[in-house]
């Protein structure tokens, strides 16, 4: 058996703040095989973006941050090597696509230069060869008239086109893993779908592993092999995507799925809500972090933190709950005034 492409073991990312230690990622373990797609979902503050950046090595040990645990990417310990070695990984082994395409692009550089820069640095291509490859990459991400677009500045492109450029940049050096952090949040709905379709087809064609980080469950549904649901810095549940959406085992996953309005539901029906707000990460509660908002919580949940364990479900499915749910999800929506 070959080693997985990515292995994250008991990862903690802690920010030192004037008000104390902020444990943004608090003990996350996961692994990803080559070519596999993983969705990481959670609300803002759940630590999903910090996790993505820590895997990438953009967040590492420093004056204000502490990373413990390990991230092994294609056999390299991302946080145990020198910065120079980490930089060699970026682009060639792992690449990242961020939420806002405009801030990922340099407004005073032409589109082509964004692409040729890494090609010349990592691949050592000549100017002409890099330019040819850049145009080819733009064509690959579905940009019409790629040669002309390469000569334009980012402000001349629409939001969707800019995000395509950012994706082309990420793909420039054939990474084995692409981390897309909310890649479609800043885009219009019809464009969102195009970008997600593009990411999916590229991942399949290039046999690239993908981590899709999103707050939007709909983005992840049907586009990933597995999903990890994060809550307050920890993984609440991780399983095959169909399993999470069909039979969520953690009460948080269930509540999150139920709180999304469905196109099928009747107008004016009230949505299921998760009362309260996520815990303060400067002083997270003992026990299960979701206990205060959980409709099934008992005393034990407030005292003893549940471990992320298989708990007798399908292979590869783990849940951090003392009393995992077993019944398939039913969209029970309360009618107004009922």
């Amino acid at each position: 058996m070959t080693a997985p492409l990515l292995e994250v073991d008991d990862l903690h990312t802690t920010f030192r703040t004037p008000r104390g230690a902020m444990r943004a990622v608090d003990g996350v373990s996961l692994s990803l095989a080559a070519g596999e797609t993983l969705g990481i979902v959670g609300e803002s503050g759940s630590g999903k973006s910090v996790l993505g950046r820590t895997i990438m090595g953009l967040i590492t040990n420093g004056p204000a941050t502490q990373v413990t645990g390990s991230v092994r990417l294609a056999g390299v310990d991302v946080h145990g090597v020198k910065q120079a070695r980490r930089r060699e990984l970026w682009g060639t082994t792992v690449a990242m696509v961020f939420q806002d395409p405009m801030t990922s692009l340099n407004p005073v550089k032409r589109v082509g230069l964004h692409l040729t820069e890494s090609l010349r640095l990592h691949r050592g291509l000549s100017k002409g060869a890099a330019r040819e490859r850049a145009v080819e990459l733009l064509r690959q991400v579905g940009i019409p008239e790629p040669a002309r677009r390469a000569g334009q500045y980012p402000h001349e492109l629409s939001g969707g086109m800019r995000q395509r450029v950012v994706i082309a940049m990420a793909l420039a050096c054939d990474p084995q893993l692409l981390i897309a952090d909310e890649p479609t949040t800043a885009l219009d709905v019809t464009v969102q779908k195009q970008i997600l379709d593009l990411l999916q087809s590229l991942a399949e064609r290039l046999d690239m592993a993908t981590i899709l980080v999103s707050h939007d469950l709909g983005t992840v549904a049907g586009r990933t092999d597995r999903v990890a649901v994060m809550y307050a810095g920890r993984v609440a549940e991780s399983a095959a995507t169909d399993a999470v959406f069909g039979t969520p085992r953690h009460p948080y996953s269930q509540a999150l799925i139920e709180s999304i309005p469905s196109i099928e539901s009747r107008p004016h029906s009230l949505l299921a809500t998760i009362e309260g707000s996520p815990p303060n990460m400067l002083a997270p509660p003992a026990g299960c972090r979701f206990a205060a908002r959980c409709r099934y919580a008992v005393d034990r949940c407030r005292v003893e933190a549940p471990a992320l364990e298989p708990r007798g479900a399908a292979a590869g499915s783990v849940v951090a709950c003392h009393f995992p749910l077993t019944a398939p999800l039913q969209h029970q929506r309360q009618e107004v005034g009922a």
């Binding site: 803002s44 999150l256 309005p261 009230l270 949505l271 809500t273 998760i274 107004v336």
Partner: peptide
Amino acid sequence: LDVSVQAQILNLLETSAR
């Protein structure tokens, strides 16, 4: 707003309108 908060606000608007 976040998904879970979105549901709270939508419900609030729905009940307030009524």
